[in-house]
Each structure stands twice: as C-alpha cells, then as structure tokens.
Simulated scan of single mutants.
Amino acid sequence: MGKLLFILGAVLLAYVWWRSQQIKDKAYQAVLNRCYESDVELLDGSIALIKQGPTKDKLGNWHWFRHFQFEFTSTREHRYKGLITMAGFHVVDIELEPFHIN
C-alpha cells in the first residue's frame, strides 16, 4: 500500500510540474507577443515566477493565479520591468512599466 501511495504521489507531482511548465510557456509566448506589439525587446529571453496561489477574481470565483516578472528595453540603454498574470492557461493582464520611445 505504501508503494502505491508513493507512486501516485510521484505521478501527481510530475503532472503538476508538467502543467506548470505548459502555463509558463503560454505566458512566455504572450509576453513575446506584447513586446512585439509594443516595439520593445524582451531581455534575457525569460520570465520568472514571483508569486502564485489561490485568489478570487472580480466575480468572486476562486482561481489559481501565477504572476511572472520579466524585463524589457525600448532603447537598449534602460531596463524596464513587466508583469504578466495568469489564471490557469488564461492571460489575465500584462503590465509594462512606462518606457522611453525612440
């Protein structure tokens, strides 16, 4: 019985990790699209998970939110921060700090 619980736990952890990677990949693609639309460059080619957890949305429904931070540049001289919020596989919001325009 103990071995079965161990295997089920390992499978569950692998599934949670796999799903988290899929969500991060979707967030990364959304950030790339926003950077392209805003004519800025994503720096370091990555996003970083900074916060996650259950939170109520505007309608009072519970969702598991993930907040990823990234950096971008518009002039290649200054770094600016951005934040993307995901609820599952859905992009809730992408925020870019105010930046200089060439």
Rank of each mutant, 00 (worst) to 15 (best):
residue 84 I to A: 06
residue 50 I to D: 05
residue 82 G to H: 13
residue 94 I to R: 07
residue 46 S to V: 06
residue 84 I to T: 03
residue 90 H to D: 03
residue 29 Q to F: 10
residue 25 D to V: 04
residue 20 S to R: 01
residue 56 K to F: 09
residue 92 V to Y: 10
residue 48 A to K: 13
residue 67 H to Q: 15
residue 42 L to V: 05
residue 28 Y to F: 15
residue 75 T to N: 15
residue 40 V to D: 01
residue 91 V to H: 12
residue 69 Q to N: 03
residue 8 L to N: 15
residue 77 E to W: 15
residue 21 Q to M: 03
residue 88 G to R: 04
residue 62 W to Y: 12
residue 93 D to Q: 15
residue 9 G to W: 01
residue 43 L to Q: 08
residue 69 Q to P: 00
residue 14 A to H: 03
residue 64 W to P: 01
residue 41 E to Y: 09
residue 66 R to S: 13
residue 102 N to V: 05
residue 83 L to N: 06
residue 70 F to N: 04
residue 62 W to D: 15
residue 34 R to K: 14
residue 14 A to M: 05
residue 83 L to G: 01
residue 89 F to G: 15
residue 51 K to G: 03
residue 91 V to N: 10
residue 83 L to K: 14
residue 2 G to S: 07
residue 53 G to V: 07
residue 39 D to Q: 11
residue 55 T to K: 13
residue 12 L to C: 13
residue 41 E to F: 11
residue 70 F to T: 04
residue 77 E to I: 03
residue 75 T to D: 15
residue 88 G to I: 00
residue 42 L to E: 08
residue 16 V to P: 00
residue 76 R to A: 08
residue 3 K to V: 13
residue 54 P to Q: 08
residue 64 W to F: 07
residue 13 L to S: 11
residue 37 E to T: 02
residue 13 L to T: 07
residue 79 R to E: 14
residue 92 V to F: 11
residue 15 Y to I: 11
residue 22 Q to F: 05
residue 86 M to L: 12
residue 12 L to R: 15
residue 55 T to N: 12
residue 24 K to I: 05
residue 102 N to T: 01
residue 8 L to Q: 15
residue 101 I to W: 04
residue 71 E to L: 10
residue 6 F to C: 12
residue 90 H to T: 01
residue 41 E to I: 13
residue 80 Y to V: 05
residue 13 L to H: 04
residue 61 N to C: 02
residue 83 L to D: 05
residue 24 K to H: 05
residue 5 L to Y: 11
residue 86 M to P: 06
residue 60 G to K: 10
residue 97 E to L: 13
residue 54 P to L: 10
residue 8 L to I: 10
residue 72 F to T: 09
residue 96 L to W: 09
residue 12 L to A: 14
residue 59 L to N: 10
residue 63 H to D: 06
residue 75 T to W: 03
residue 29 Q to G: 01
residue 14 A to I: 02
residue 12 L to P: 05
residue 101 I to K: 08
residue 86 M to T: 11
residue 100 H to N: 06
residue 73 T to G: 09
residue 17 W to A: 13
residue 30 A to T: 07
residue 5 L to T: 10
